[in-house]
Design a protein around this nucleic acid. Structure first.
Lengths: 355, 355
DNA sequence: ACTGATTGGGAAAGCGCATTCCCGTTGTGT
DNA sequence: ACACAACGGGAATGCGCTTTCCCAATCAGT
């Protein structure tokens, strides 16, 4: 059996389709109460479900927000998605999800798909990449976004703008002060930690990772601490874990020699993997080495020892991404789009007899 | 500037809209190569983006899969969403996400919204509830689902079927052997643990929680162990944490008296909160008490001490939910829809001098 | 070379709904 | 009592696309 249409409802209620349309959705003109009741009853009896596609086609607005993330299973993105979802619901919008694995090429196809669905807005979460290999894909992405904007689409990018896009009035950048916060973190750690610093970073060219590395370097430099060595690996638990296992002997040696290492992983999930890898290599945190992360992922806050990190208001970031891009039903625009973080100094960087 | 339409592309290419349509999407009839090239070039030059809504309206298929979860920030649902997303992409479908906080009423509105968008399938993840207070909302949900099915929608439910729905040929239940696995877990724990058992459950009436509690009871009973006390709390980290804090003195006392408690939290996130709460109350796991969880959430596998739990193939569950519900482009149906779990016995239930 | 089958393209009819116009009816002002 | 405004409802058009149906042109077959 096929879906019942507005026309059928109208016929059953003995009115015109126009009238039925007016009563069944908040139109400016509200038909008389008796007629309205009739229509509503007919709709109910027939099990009428409005066809959002037809509505969207007629109104040229789909009521959909597109969200693009690297990996929804990553708690970082899950938290952002949560915020997006909340704000979307307040606006009576649905959210469409695309996961891309972080490649600009996949992001471009996701944008294209969302554009095809005439999404009211597209939110692009996840680090931009500046790697040379992605240059072409990045420009494809920029083109796709421009195309979308030409059709009156709004896009919000979390972190950093996409290189090479035009129409800035359609682009909203939710800037995340990664560099500044990493700098602060480095300063705080340098104040208490005696010994060399090591940075466990994501792949080279990942903007978020690069920003945090750069900030950490600055912070160290400002504190008069020798520059940290940087190790590049995967921006996930596995990358951290592998690096931890690899580094364990060296870290253990450093500790024996009285110059324990402080490791900064550019994300919490990496830090967690790192700690696990070190532990499997016989290194205890914070006894033998200090470890810090970034993001303050909620699920990881109960980790033991408590992980020193930087809290990012992920949920809020998701919210303001949609706030900056689609107005509330009431009409008011959203809150101010500033994102700030907060240092969370916990046990993982507090060795006994230190601090 | 408004979007360019197929008609404009057709005019520019000097062909009819019909022909343009045929070349720009895989139609059965493929126009001549020269004409096709013309059309493609025109589309490119004009920056044509097909209107998926119009396509959906004309074809009556939207290419969208609706996913309903309690909370996307919960790693349990995030993992399922990941699997859904993967399988959806293989089928060239987009996924629409709705988070409901677990209330059947919200689930019903989500189903309604997805039905309005003519989603090709709806996947309902997250525990059903049998609480009396939800009776009415549950039947609303069932109605909404039936309405959706009447319009040829396919629905997959993860865990347990929704009570009161008809048209079983449209409903696919991805059964999760919660009860059986909890039973096995209880048996394994009873074999090594000496001391009373305590179950930290979710709200009463939550099917998943209830199933796991029941299974655990059975397992204990089969092992000849006295029945466990059940404590109901929130099915999240906060619930586990509060219960842990509350229980700490009692657990500590039990340990002092030589009869350490084994706590079974019905989900990993609860277990993590529980451990944290206990620790804040001075109870060390596994030294003073044993703790087990359920799900084997990936992000939590690096937890220390390793959490004894039951591994559920969450990603796979997400995959088969879509496989059972929308065919592959190739045409073949999906894999067999059986879900199995695996006991993961780790340190959290292995006190020194035991096991 | 003539008929019948096949191919390649166009015309047009929807898909389900919103909305602009239009018209008949009732209410207000002097 | 009459003109005019305001209101409440219907007819019709269009949103952008797919797809059937139809027609002209080409092809093979005896």
């Amino acid at each position: 059996m096929s879906a019942t249409t507005l026309a059928e409802v109208a016929r059953k209620a003995g009115v015109s389709p126009a009238t039925a349309s007016r009563v069944l959705n908040g139109s400016a003109r509200i038909p008389g109460p008796e007629i309205a009741a009739n229509v509503r009853r007919a709709a109910l009896e027939l099990g009428y479900v409005p066809n959002a596609q037809a509505q969207g086609l007629a109104k040229s607005s789909s009521g959909v927000i597109g969200l693009i993330v690297h990996d929804i299973a990553d708690p970082y993105f899950a938290a952002i998605a949560h915020g997006v979802q909340e704000a979307a619901r307040e606006r009576n919008k649905l959210v469409m999800l695309a996961t891309t694995g972080g490649t600009p090429a996949e992001e471009a196809t996701a944008v294209s798909a969302f554009a095809a669905h005439r999404a009211d807005a597209i939110i692009l979460a996840g680090s931009r990449t500046t790697a040379a290999a992605d240059r072409e894909a990045n420009s494809t992405l920029a083109n796709e976004l421009d195309l979308y904007c030409r059709n009156d689409g709004q896009v919000a990018v979390i972190g950093r703008p996409v290189e090479g896009t035009g129409s800035p009035e359609h682009h909203h950048v939710i800037a995340v002060p990664n560099e500044d916060l990493a700098c602060q973190l480095a300063g705080a750690l340098a104040a208490t930690h005696r010994g060399p610093f090591l940075i466990v970073a994501g792949p080279e060219g990942l903007a978020t990772s690069d920003d945090r590395v750069r900030g950490f370097h600055h912070g160290l430099h400002a504190a008069g601490v020798p520059a940290a060595e940087v190790l590049h690996t995967g921006l996930d638990r596995a990358g951290g874990h592998a690096t931890g296992a690899e580094l364990a002997p060296r870290v253990a040696a450093a500790h024996r020699e009285g110059a324990p290492v402080c490791l900064f992983a550019v994300s919490d999930v990496m830090a967690i993997g790192l700690v696990a890898g070190l532990r499997e290599g016989g290194v205890q945190v914070p006894r033998d080495a200090a470890v810090a992360g970034f993001d303050d992922i909620e699920t990881l806050r109960d980790f033991h020892p408590g992980l020193t990190t930087v809290r990012l208001p992920l949920l809020h970031i998701g919210r303001i991404a949609v706030e900056s891009t689609v107005a509330l039903p009431g009409g008011a625009a959203g809150a101010e789009p500033t994102v700030t973080g907060e240092l969370m100094l916990r046990r993982s960087t507090t060795a006994a007899g230190q601090g």
